[in-house]
């Protein structure tokens, strides 16, 4: 079928090219998270995860985590080839239990942050980040 340039661009306009990842990787992420919590349940709330809804580029995605009272926060990219991203261990001179960084996401997926609180309990937050593939040669 022949498309004129206008039609080609019109088709392209508004279309999102997305990388969708298989479900199998979720299992690896669950395992990694269970290892961190020792199998304990993580409560929702008490931890904030900030990530863009749509990442302009999967190579450099800015994210932030904050969990007042936490001793450590771990970030997981549940859809990446290996789910672990970073572990922040807060020392006595940390003014807040918060940090920002830039991460790589292989495709659209759920990013999860787990916090280990000072009292030994765990808190969890998650965000779905859509990772788009650019149009002009990607």
């Amino acid at each position: 079928m022949d498309f004129t340039r206008r039609e080609t661009l019109a088709l392209g306009a508004g279309a999102a090219a997305m990388a969708v990842l298989p479900f199998q990787v979720q299992a690896a992420a669950d395992e990694a998270m269970a290892e961190f919590t020792g199998g304990a349940e993580a409560a929702m709330g008490g931890i904030e995860l900030t990530a863009p809804e749509i990442a302009e580029n999967g190579n450099t995605v800015p994210v932030s985590v904050s969990a007042p009272g936490a001793t450590a926060i771990v970030i997981y990219a549940t859809g990446n080839p290996t789910p672990g991203v970073a572990t922040f261990n807060f020392g006595p001179l940390a003014a807040s239990q918060a940090a920002s960084t830039r991460i790589r996401l292989a495709g659209t997926q759920e990013v999860v942050a787990l916090a280990k609180m000072a009292d030994g309990t765990f808190a969890k937050a998650s965000a779905t980040v859509k990772v788009t593939i650019g149009g002009c040669g990607g």
Binding site: N59, T60, V61, A77, N80, T82, G84, V85, A86, T87, F88, N89, F90, G91, P92, L93, A94, A99, T101, R102, I103, R104, L105
Partner: peptide, 12 residues
Amino acid sequence: SVVDVTLEPAIS
């Protein structure tokens, strides 16, 4: 210590 971070390959 202020912070001690473990990095994995997913850090940009």
